[in-house]
Amino acid sequence: MAKSARSVPSLVPAILALMVLLGLAYLLFADLQPSRTEHTVSPPIEIEDPEIEEVTIEPVAPTEDQQAIIEKEAEQFVDHLGSKAVTLNDKQGEFVRKDGTIVIPKIEKRETTIGQLLADKNLSADTPVTIKYTETEKQQTTLQALDDSTEDKNTFVTIEQADGSRQQRPLIDLLNADNVDKSAPITVITEQDVQKKTTIGQLSQSDLPEDRLLEAEIDKGSIELSVNDIVKSGGLEDSALFYLHRVTEADRQGLWGIIQSGLIQRFRQGLALEGINKDLVRVTIPADADEPLPTGLSSFLGKVLNNKVESSYIYNYTTSTMGHNPDLIYPGQQLILIHFSTKELKDIYQFFADQRNEQAQTFAIH
């Protein structure tokens, strides 16, 4: 009986199993790798810097704390504004209290000579006097020496001629003149303004020539006045203040200009006060603050000035008479007194201090 052929194992299952294993291995390996997807965008996106919108910060009304600070400043400013003894000069007015005194120096001005001053029998040896004159000096030199010693060739030079006449020209013109001899001797005149405080007695012993022309300010003492006596201020509150001004030739704008400039100067000058975190407590009043508003109405300061012009005191201290006509003021003999209540002055301070805050500069972020 013939033997049957031996069966050969099939490789198909093994191949299938290997493929399954390879597939599993690929899947496991792919899960371990980070995935990243790249996209190409067409057209490309241009990234720009972010645009920041311009922001304007508008001024805001003062907070309650700011307002309280301004009120405190105003109160202390006015409380310390006036004094009980004021010495007036021709340059600036002052504030004085109702119960204060006013000292007005009696200064006589003369254009005269040394000899005429010494001959005046009404002046004693101890009479104070301030003299002002021009001192002239002559110097022998040459144009070459001036050229060497003068840096600014446009400096004016005064030369005395042989006949005593004078010629004043820029040095550069003298140096560039036709046929000029820079080594020739010339006489140069220099002038210097001199001011001295002295007495008549000391002046008599000086070496100044008696024919010297000069301007003299002779101190003849002072006038002392009581504010209460001048204005009869019995009906005014004890805290009342008066702005004082001695009328001078410079007062071209009348009472309105006197009061306006006085307030502007005094409030801008300020005061150093304890308890205030500032070097000076002060406020700026604009020079045009008295001008009418665009609507044609009077401004805050304009109303104040108009009221004060109409209620001013004009005292002639040479005749001891009182006047109230704002159109009649005379330099050298009149004293202007302008009454202010403490409330009026505080209102002025607060008004312009508030304006200062409201007009704070705006700014923008670009």
Rank of each mutant, 00 (worst) to 15 (best):
N357K: 13
E54W: 02
R6W: 00
N325V: 07
E108A: 13
E51N: 10
G257F: 03
I230Y: 00
K278L: 08
Q140W: 06
E137S: 11
A5I: 05
D238P: 02
F340R: 04
H366M: 11
T150D: 02
E191Y: 07
N122Y: 09
T158V: 14
T87L: 04
R246T: 05
E160Q: 12
L297Q: 15
K106S: 08
P50M: 11
K84S: 14
N154E: 12
D238T: 12
L16T: 14
Q168C: 02
Q361C: 08
I259A: 09
D99R: 10
K3E: 11
L175R: 01
Q192D: 10
T321Q: 13
V180M: 08
E291G: 00
Y313P: 06
L345M: 15
K346L: 04
A162G: 02
S149H: 10
N277D: 14
T198E: 00
T362E: 14
Y26V: 08
S204I: 01
V157R: 01
L236R: 03
K109F: 07
R356F: 11
I52Q: 11
P292A: 04
S124A: 14
A85Y: 15
V309K: 10
K153M: 12
L293M: 12
L345H: 11
L88G: 04
E210T: 14
N154Q: 15
R212W: 05
K220N: 13
D65W: 04
E310F: 08
T56L: 10
R97T: 15
D120M: 02
S35Y: 14
Q116A: 15
A177R: 08
T112E: 06
R169F: 06
K346Y: 04
E64L: 12
V247K: 01
I102Y: 03
A162V: 12
